[in-house]
Design a binder for these strands. Structure first.
Lengths: 233, 233
DNA sequence: CGCGGCTTTGATGTTCATCAAGTAAAGTGG
DNA sequence: CCACTTTACTTGATGAACATCAAAGCCGCG
């Protein structure tokens, strides 16, 4: 990194992707990718990937916040996970399927960096270290998803709400006061419950003085208590 | 394959791993692996991998049937998935963690083939094609797990039981009559319900004439009806 | 202004966990 | 080999957790 930074002629100098992802890629290869990559902007609410579409590009999130979701058989949508900048949006199925098995939508205005799959594959083919770091990243992401599923599954409604609030506070906004980027319905789609009960739990937390609610704005008042609820279900 | 088969001097000739996994590996490399691999036998019930143990080997299942499970914080075990021969036991966390985040136990007498991680990594480093096929396989496996989680989550108890019975019949035993390889408790741990209710659902299916139960032996009588229940929850 | 989407609260019924108790099967030690 | 313990399985009764249905308030938007 330190060496190659100033050698780049493309406009990716400030991009953290280099240091995270392309550790093992030569400057030449990075330049080649940078010159052919495409950046795309999406507004809050826009769909970035549609389930069933063919996979042509490797996509990662440069800025913003997105949700990965799956359209269940009975038309109900299920949110698989949220992704932050530098997360791969291309997670599941990227290397094992021809078509996306999930959709991605922007929860906040977002920018993606898109690279043709061909190029990723060609680099990986010629560069085992790069391929291994790919495995590692993809692995980490899916591990996280599976562990979170297991974690949420063993909690009850009240605990799940506490859990997701702490998740937004800690992992996403790094603050105990933030605007919820998702609707009540989307929370329900993530933790697998109904909207009404999500709202009821939020109200209960408010009545108990653990959080404050102003529309979409959430303020965690008693973090300790919230953590205990998230822990003990 | 056809070319390399008779050139091997090690005892892996009959092993399907070659054709699945080592498509892109030179005969020399395969020989090197074969000569240093270790096969291990486990009896029904034995633990193959213990959660928290350090990861030293890449393990795949040669014969038998195993379960991957996670010990939840509240001491309740959760079954993540089942694995058949030629499935990788080393799935999650293999390339992203130092220690196992799940345990593996044999549900039937099983044989594993173990290869030092160092060797896998060294081959992958020098051989991008091999690394890519690794990603593909690992990806496929985790995709399957996540999709199944989503699938099961949107069903109710009765539908979940129907679903898992069909899974055993179709994917594992390829027959409508089989011995359940898992206890009622383990079914409960997989679908996230209590033992009592698992038993109740099984009894209901029996009373409705959809299945027959003789101890651990299950016979699916009306597959169509069972499929409809699994579908419609 | 009125329409539709998101949110909120209440009432009601279903699904499921928990508790309790009993049977069957299988291993254990004298 | 038999009493004894343990483990898996099974059924019923009860209550808690949650979904569903209904209705009303809020807000942005055409």
């Amino acid at each position: 990194m330190t060496v190659t930074d100033n050698m780049l002629t493309c406009n990716c100098e400030g991009c953290e992707l280099k240091s995270l992802f392309f550790e093992n890629v030569s400057t030449l290869e990075i330049e080649s990718i940078c010159s052919r990559k495409v950046e795309r902007e999406y507004q809050k609410g826009e769909i970035i990937i549609r389930e069933g579409a063919e996979i042509h590009e490797f996509i990662y999130l440069k800025s913003g916040l997105v949700k990965l979701y799956h359209s269940g058989s009975n038309s109900r949508e299920q949110i698989i996970c949220f992704a932050l900048p530098l997360d791969f949006v291309s997670l599941l199925s990227i290397f094992s399927e021809k078509r996306y098995i999930y959709s991605v939508a922007a929860l906040e205005d977002s920018i993606t960096c898109n690279i043709k799959m061909d190029e990723i594959i060609s680099i990986a083919t010629g560069n085992g270290r790069f391929a291994l770091s790919l495995i590692e990243k993809v692995n980490k992401a899916t591990d996280r998803i599976i562990l979170d599923f297991l974690e949420v599954k063993q909690k009850r409604l009240y605990g799940r709400i506490a859990y997701i609030l702490l998740y937004f506070a800690k992992s996403i906004y790094k603050s105990n006061s933030f605007d919820l980027p998702v609707s009540r319905k989307e929370i329900a789609e993530y933790i697998g419950m109904t909207v009404e009960n999500v709202i009821r739990s939020l109200s209960d937390l408010r009545k108990d003085g653990i959080i404050k609610i102003f529309g979409p704005k959430i303020e965690i008042v008693d973090e300790g208590k919230l953590a205990r609820i998230a822990e003990l279900s």
